[in-house]
Simulated scan of single mutants.
Amino acid sequence: MKVAQVQQSIREYAVSIGIDKIGFTSAAPFLELKNRLRRQQELGYQSGFEESDIEKRTEPSLLLDRAESIIAIAVAYPSKMQDSPKGKKGERRGIFCRASWGTDYHIVLREKLQLLETYIAKLVPDAKMRSMVDTGELADRAVAERAGLGWSAKNCSIITPEFGSYVYLGEMITNIPFQPDTPMEDQCGDCTLCMDACPTGALIQGGQLNAQRCIAFLTQSKKPIPEEFRAKIGNRVYGCDTCQTVCPKNKGMYNLHQEAFKPEGELAKPLLVPMLTLSNRQFKETYGHMSGSWRGKNPIQRNAILAIAHFKDEAAVPALIELLVTDPRPVIRGTIVWALGEIGCSTGIEAIKDAIQNEVDEEVLNEMQNVLDTK
């Protein structure tokens, strides 16, 4: 079978297994990206979650011997929740970002890429392939852009005409010399809505992100969240969608067709107080199938405390005080102290005065003193 026929067969098969978009590009080095990544490193804008070796991120030939092409795929995820549960006084809710709704996308996309690999191996028995999703060395967005899936937008997402930026990306390096697709023209124009709306000013300029200021990154960090960002977290327990929800290109992009990503309302918008006392096992059993669980319960519980402070939920104060006294984690205790200060009720302040007598962690003591100095 000729390469062009193989390529067309792959396109058709991809549709049949639920891949929403597929594109092809060469395995040539990503030279422009290499320069951008070096600049990001110099500025200290990286999150620390990405592959640190810039050569591996930009040189496909280092990842697969005799690499010729890269197949890029996109699978859409929903932007809208049907029958969304509503929070109310005394029963406040947090929210996981849309990219954590339903089944962990790493699992879903890896399954689809594995099916694709098996199919290609039948067509081309001597084909070599290496697939990756998100946590692989290659920069998904750069591959998708060059393969014509969409354009690289100012909000640091790939925007597709069919699904907006609500798409998961994956890729497969192969030794088959496929015909490259044509990259798309940038369609952001003069629009800066995403940059203007970013709660922390993390979008430095179009397409450049300071991950250290990005709420999506901050909610995944295991350290105490710097005070300047705490009130900006809102009720987000994982991730942030602001730069996507304000994008005009995402208007009307609901993408409800992928069953695996349809959210369960009680999990995507969970009650906050019950989250605070989940054990590791309970957290894994409840949220373990979601991509937002990958950092474990500690960051999620810390974020839930910040969300309670956001709502100034006095009904949650007894639960916070109980944890302040009993929880062994300094990050949790310190965050509770700040939250009690924000809520501002006398019961919470008195609890801090009592707890300071037995506190031994220096950072928690500093949080306590800061609150007591202002009350």
Rank of each mutant, 00 (worst) to 15 (best):
M1I: 09
V6H: 08
D20T: 11
I22A: 11
A27W: 10
E32A: 11
R36H: 00
R39S: 10
E42M: 13
Y45P: 02
R57P: 03
E59A: 10
R66L: 14
I70L: 12
A74L: 11
P78S: 07
P85I: 11
K88I: 03
G90V: 06
R93E: 08
R98T: 07
S100A: 15
R110P: 09
Y119I: 00
P125R: 02
K128C: 08
V133L: 10
S165G: 07
V167E: 03
V167R: 07
L169Y: 10
L169Q: 08
E171D: 12
T192S: 06
L193D: 07
D196H: 11
T200G: 01
A202R: 09
L209S: 01
F217H: 11
Q220S: 06
P224E: 12
I233N: 00
G234A: 11
D241S: 05
T242D: 14
Q244W: 04
C247S: 03
K249R: 08
G252A: 07
H257Y: 04
Q258W: 11
A260R: 14
A260V: 12
A268E: 05
A268G: 06
K269N: 13
V273W: 14
P274D: 04
M275N: 01
R281K: 13
F283A: 06
K284C: 10
G288T: 05
S291D: 05
R295A: 06
P299M: 05
Q301E: 12
R302I: 08
F311T: 09
A315D: 02
V317L: 11
V317P: 07
A319T: 14
L323D: 02
V325L: 14
D327W: 08
P330R: 12
I332E: 01
I332V: 15
R333D: 00
R333F: 04
T335M: 09
A339Y: 15
G344P: 08
C345L: 09
C345Y: 05
T347Y: 14
T347W: 05
V360R: 13
T374L: 05
